[in-house]
Design a protein around this nucleic acid. Sequence first.
DNA 1: AAATCGAATGTAAGCGCTTACATTTTGATG
DNA 2: CATCAAAATGTAAGCGCTTACATTCGATTT
Lengths: 344, 344
Amino acid sequence: MTDNSKPTLDDVARAAGVSTATVSRCLNSPDQVIAPTRIRVMQAVEALGYTPDFGGRALASRRTNTVGAIIPTMDNAIFARGLQSFQEALSRFGKTLLVASSNYDPAREREQMEVLAGRGADGLLLIGSARPESSTEYLRRRGIPFVGAWNLGGEDGYFVGFDNRAAAAQLADMVIARGHRRLAMIAGISFMNDRAADRTEGVRSAAEAAGIGRADLPVIEAAYTFEDGARAMGELMAIRPRPTVVMCGNDVLAVGAMQKARELGLKVPGDVSITGFDDIDLAGVVDPMLTTVRVPHRRMGQAAADMLIKLIKKEPVERRIEIPTSIIERGTLGPPRADDEHSA
Amino acid sequence: MTDNSKPTLDDVARAAGVSTATVSRCLNSPDQVIAPTRIRVMQAVEALGYTPDFGGRALASRRTNTVGAIIPTMDNAIFARGLQSFQEALSRFGKTLLVASSNYDPAREREQMEVLAGRGADGLLLIGSARPESSTEYLRRRGIPFVGAWNLGGEDGYFVGFDNRAAAAQLADMVIARGHRRLAMIAGISFMNDRAADRTEGVRSAAEAAGIGRADLPVIEAAYTFEDGARAMGELMAIRPRPTVVMCGNDVLAVGAMQKARELGLKVPGDVSITGFDDIDLAGVVDPMLTTVRVPHRRMGQAAADMLIKLIKKEPVERRIEIPTSIIERGTLGPPRADDEHSA
DNA sequence: AAATCGAATGTAAGCGCTTACATTTTGATG
DNA sequence: CATCAAAATGTAAGCGCTTACATTCGATTT
């Protein structure tokens, strides 16, 4: 009852009066064992509270049925959501997911790669494609397949994601079509974050195409928190002439900006319009509701799992799957104020 | 360069011209190895892209430096936050955290216990104390220490948390002091969730103490989503006479309720007051800001890590650490409407 | 009843690593 | 320079498991 140490296969075998091989078979391919024996073994397992040791199993079988994911942060609802479906899809294939976070730091991402590799991950889910060559080289050397998600990557590698640049540009086009000429942007930190960089680029290119000068598109980078969004908004609203719309790198920043606008006594969208990106739950909760870009996280997680599984099985896969995004028009985007419109 | 399979200790040893023992020592206690040798070994490690195999290591050393956490869901910001600091605190002790989720299902929680035990977790963080005896018995049998967080548990076991009941009661007292007599509650699903149950109980007892009848405290249980909160709010607002305040089991439900109120054309707190619980970021973002109970997640995560580490080291520990909560008064709680007040 | 064969079970060799113990090397000392 | 303890390194025995191969056992066929 209170043996201090955990039972092993041997203990079970002894208790059931069979060999360890038979116990192992009961656990892994029960139909190879005749019923009476199997029952005896299972009772022993139950009685001893035996759980197979993963390490031993992995070592002997050279399989782990584990895949890893390294995400920048757990703090962002969008990753949580996508990961959830990734996880669900994986478990349908009997795979376990190990999650690690990099905190947007490439060195830490690399560390986590090693940890997950050491734990026997058969494949890895990574976010985006901005990372040192040495990191991907490491994975390749160890023969660990990986897929990038949340964007579409470069020439090589496997990706399930969407075109951040195009989606941002499309939203910017709509903003401009509403009559805005003095835009501003609160972007995510672009260092080693291709999603943030692409979104900024998208807005910039749309602005440029519309003949809007660099000076009429101030961009401030901010960490993905309400506070930083609010702070950036403060700076932007101090600019004269004031931007008529603030496009944000994601919804969290946008909500921070809305908060700041309220604080400053600016009506949204009356005095200033705001847009987000991601369409997390939050976007539907604020008042007015946020105009944003919807990213189908669940579908992305699912597709990423399928792709990774195929890669692990060495089945043929297409190199990149593009998930379509859509613009969700809600309350925070309006036309510029009449006096603003003509002062442009 | 492109050997198909991952390098082992043996490969490194051969490459460096030393024994496996020396390589192992280089990795685990470098100061036992003289500098020139160590450098040679490290170069080989680097050149081969070697990462130690966790399974082998765990097997041989009978240590994993891993602790596990089983949380109900990753989808709730509050757990994410607490876990983050738990993780940080652990890594200061060189421990790795493995996270699993139970989806509020005791059977699944038990499964995950076995998975984590199989992976060699030295200790476990669990949420709350409501679970079948057989689950805790399993852990005890295997000698895996565990601490419950987010509440204070029963007679035995180790806990780091707060008194959900008392905190809820305190908030209810304040609500009643403001003049409300017709309360309502949107509670979390109480099945196998002591936090939800305790919060409901707290409100009930405060109401009872104030002489408020059961009929003047309708309670609807709802899953922790905006939608379910909104749905419950819809039902509560159909009651006549209408409750003047809706106390919610957490902030997510409260925000859902606020959304619904807006939809119904009810002013908060003018027509109906709303309170939350947890004080997640969201609470400061809605308009008006949410009156809620602040739970110091970070401190709790930290304290839980300390306790678990001590338990693992078999150092003496106090059985329960209570983390104080506080009430955050913001905009969603006002007095009842004048006409309501006198109709009670 | 002997021969045959497939199903059930057992035997034992590792999987990659750590570590107690044995051996060699080093450098200080007489 | 021989001596010897301490430091550095090597040897080899497992850790708990899977699995190829060997063995045993019954049932079926002749």
